[in-house]
Amino acid sequence: MEFFKNLKVDYTTGNKNNYSGRSSKLPNQYWHQEIKVSSIEKLKIPNTIDIGLIGYACDEGVQRNQGRIGARKGPKSIRTKLGKLPIHFKNKNITDFGDIICVDTNLEDCQKALSKSISTLIKNHVLPIAIGGGHDIALANFNGIKDAIKNTSKNNIGIINFDAHFDVRKVDTQGNSGTPFYQILKENDTARYFAIGIQQQSNTKELFEIAAAYNVSYVSNFDCESFGEDLKNKLTTFIDQVDYIYITIDLDGFSSAFAPGVSAPSALGFSPNFVYQVLTFLFQSKKVISCDIAELNPNFDIDSATAGLAAKLVDFMVLNS
């Protein structure tokens, strides 16, 4: 693995066998018919790929954060559901670049490997959609974006996080799934952060204070009953102040009625319909540079409902990109 030289990670290339579904004599009907697979090491310029999926099979960050482990199984579960979905987009080449796999407790190396992959995709004009994995995926994705645009005049990255948690815990000894945005904001003066769906009962007073100290914009879960003009205006102001938008979706921000298969489920979360409306609005800005979906835990999923939701979110992103 020359691409991941000096990093303690495992890597598996994209595998068509991860996708299956109803057979059809007609082309362009289901994801499993159209998805292509490759290796991140084989990406060449120029390419004809529009969107690249990359898995982040890691739950070391969740374990460090005293959460329920199992998120490393998320990418496989998402692909299983994704292959069965019908497709309604045209002329989009979507390629699965496989999984970066955390080895033992080497979270930081796994993050560096994903960052390098994200950067490579963006530099090749491919929209990355990373599927995790714990929410420590966010630090990796952000750093990949940062590396990809470092030689450009535009470097203001706006983070939109759909989540019940701020994830701005201070780093004690090691980063984890609860610290990514603290790490980002502390190290990057130009980064801006907007959290959607924050639940008071899921964040301590200290976390609200840290968010305020770093000028984090947010709306609570009670503001997510519908996508109204107030939130649209706040997002418009935020979008106007940044050059690029990085979208990250923590599945525990959804109500547990829709997403039971997460480390920290809550009945008080938002609905898929709300997120779909906001995603449509964000993609219309033409500033979205990378996306990810985090915290699917198949160990606690019910009838693969959460995996199905995650797969439909990927499909929706592709449709609107």
Rank of each mutant, 00 (worst) to 15 (best):
L268Q: 15
L268G: 04
L268M: 12
L268S: 14
L268N: 15
F270C: 02
S271Q: 02
F274D: 04
F274V: 00
F274S: 00
V275R: 01
V275H: 01
V275G: 02
Y276K: 03
Q277M: 06
L279F: 07
L279E: 11
T280K: 13
T280C: 10
T280Q: 15
F281D: 07
F281T: 11
F281K: 12
F281H: 08
F283G: 04
Q284V: 10
Q284I: 07
S285I: 04
S285F: 03
S285W: 02
K287A: 11
V288K: 08
I289N: 10
I293C: 06
I293K: 08
I293T: 09
A294T: 14
A294D: 12
A294H: 09
L296Y: 02
L296S: 05
P298R: 02
P298E: 07
N299K: 06
D301N: 01
I302M: 08
I302L: 05
D303V: 13
D303E: 15
D303Y: 15
D303W: 09
S304D: 15
S304M: 12
A305F: 02
T306H: 04
T306R: 06
A307Q: 14
A307P: 11
G308K: 01
L309T: 03
L309V: 11
L309P: 11
L309S: 03
A311D: 01
K312L: 03
K312R: 11
L313G: 03
V314H: 00
D315Y: 07
D315R: 07
M317T: 08
M317W: 05
V318I: 15
L319Q: 15
N320A: 05
S321I: 11
S321H: 15
S321G: 14
